[in-house]
Design a protein around this nucleic acid. Structure first.
Length: 201
DNA sequence: CGTTCGATGCACT
DNA sequence: GTGCATCGAACGT
């Protein structure tokens, strides 16, 4: 079965030390890694090709810009856990928390290249058939394709059914300004795989 | 091509 | 009450 083959080729989940580093380093190194979700509907996996960094209370676009609140509490928690929230009342967005515990920062996952479970993604996306590179393009689209919701908030990405693992290929990447935000848009904290057809816009 | 705009929930002011 | 780290349909050119 392809399932077994793919799983066997996946590395083990990235360890907590990977996330307990400067956020820009983590963001850069997440390009080319693989997000995996083992769910009842099936296994989905995709190569991370677009991310954005949100760093600290001094970053006006970071949810921690107004200090500790109930919603942004995960940002202050241990690195390597997921921060999931509902955006525009419609879309779930998933982040990987970074930096040592107490430093509110995270990397937003914005796009993936599907490598397994495209049929499951397609079903979750509903509507019309989509090209592979469209299934997980955009932060709201990828959570939908992966079945990620508020249930995954604060879940541990270094163990369990939702995790990020090494992958056998590395990707060339470059930095651009963050997109879709209304403040602090000048910072070039968006990292994309340079040759990917699955990135935004 | 391009731009506008409605849907929709909730944290925060 | 306001404003989103969005998406896609519906327009206009």
């Amino acid at each position: 079965m392809p399932t077994v083959t793919r799983k066997a080729r996946l590395g083990t989940p990235l360890r907590r030390e990977f996330y307990a580093r400067p956020t820009l380093d983590v963001a850069h190194d997440l390009i080319g890694k693989v997000l995996v979700h083992v769910s009842a509907a099936g296994i989905t996996a995709g190569v991370i090709v677009e991310v954005e960094a949100y760093i600290g209370e001094g970053d006006a676009a970071c949810h921690a810009a107004t200090g500790f609140t109930g919603r942004n509490a995960p940002l202050y928690g241990p690195p390597g856990q997921a921060y999931v929230y509902l955006n525009y009342g419609i879309h779930y967005l998933v982040n990987a928390v970074t930096e040592p515990e107490g430093v509110p920062a995270a990397v937003l996952l914005r796009a993936l290249e599907p490598i397994h479970g495209r049929d499951v993604m397609q079903q979750r996306r509903a509507s019309t058939p989509r090209a592979s590179h469209d299934l997980c393009r955009g932060p709201g689209n990828l959570t939908r394709a992966f079945g990620i919701s508020l249930r995954h908030n604060r879940c541990d990405l270094t163990s369990g059914r939702l995790f990020i693992a090494d992958w056998e290929f590395t990707r060339r990447s470059h930095w651009t300004p963050r997109i879709g935000i209304r403040v602090a848009a000048g910072r070039r904290w968006r990292c994309v795989a340079s040759d990917s057809p699955a990135v935004s816009r």
